[in-house]
Design a protein around this nucleic acid. Sequence first.
DNA 1: GAGGATATGAGACATGGTCTCGGAAAGACG
DNA 2: CGTCTTTCCGAGACCATGTCTCATATCCTC
Lengths: 161, 161
Amino acid sequence: MVSERRSSPHSDPAGHPPLIETLDRAGLRITGPRRAVADLIDARSGLFSAQDLLDDAGRKRVPIGRATVFRALDLLEELGVVERIELPDGGHAYVACEPAHHHHAVCDGCGRVREVDDHALTDAIAEIERHTGWTVSGHRLELYGRCPECRTTAPAEASRS
Amino acid sequence: MVSERRSSPHSDPAGHPPLIETLDRAGLRITGPRRAVADLIDARSGLFSAQDLLDDAGRKRVPIGRATVFRALDLLEELGVVERIELPDGGHAYVACEPAHHHHAVCDGCGRVREVDDHALTDAIAEIERHTGWTVSGHRLELYGRCPECRTTAPAEASRS
DNA sequence: GAGGATATGAGACATGGTCTCGGAAAGACG
DNA sequence: CGTCTTTCCGAGACCATGTCTCATATCCTC
Ligand SMILES: [Zn+2]
Ligand SMILES: [Zn+2]
Ligand SMILES: [Zn+2]
Ligand SMILES: [Zn+2]
């Protein structure tokens, strides 16, 4: 479990279209399980783990195989609408997001995730290439901290360094 | 296994002092196993996994417990001289490095790792904080690409995207 | 509908890491 | 040195997160 989301009015925070649509537009088969996984993800906000989805599914009495969930996540990840991110503690979690290249800021208070664009980093990387003679073909950046809501409220509530 | 290192003359690439010294200076107990792990790491260059160390140890007939290797890695990581980094494919690997904050460029040809400093990124993050209202307390950046040596040689050899 | 391509689910397997616990050994001190 | 206390170690169970296999079920096209 990644972090129990308090049910908030953020069910569709960034106004993503339903994920299932992405599968459809990509010409992939729309199957029951895929729709189910897509819906489960749509119903969440912020971080989630594959296990979270499995748990959700169990709670809603929608039986889905473990492998299927991972396969669906792989698909969605390839399509760029779900990303697997690295947590500060070394664990992984997934998050729904836009296909365009970007990065994520993760709130360690509430698990909210905010997409962050790339601008400044692109320059920084060009600079690094010039400096080092390396060719940088990809990168991964994750930011950790507190969202505006959590910054003003109690700084308490879990979080490892 | 993270990537079989071709034995190269880079045994001590950045001129790190022996890792065992770090443990010593930190006032930690110098035990046989810790020394062994430190030496095994010193003898490597580039990326390695805990399993790599275990294999090395086996080959050299230096029996070390699995848990002990992980414990030593944890220690060294806390001291900042070893870091666990995320690979493009989602796997993990360790690498010896300087304690100062920095990031890593990983060559997908040969597994070499180069430390990269933080300058431009710091500005970028300040900018993001101003923009989003978030407080960013930590971050993680990994660069993937090709080192100068590998760029000139065959672009072959594994690597996904 | 019927049929062939494709996806699913159960569960074995793999990997990477943690935990527990009795026994071993470092280091302090005399 | 020898002893004592504290810490560490190793074996192996355990766990979480994924992946694979293969027989079965489902889509989707015709
Ligand atoms: Zn928050
Ligand atoms: Zn980027
Ligand atoms: Zn290289
Ligand atoms: Zn940095």
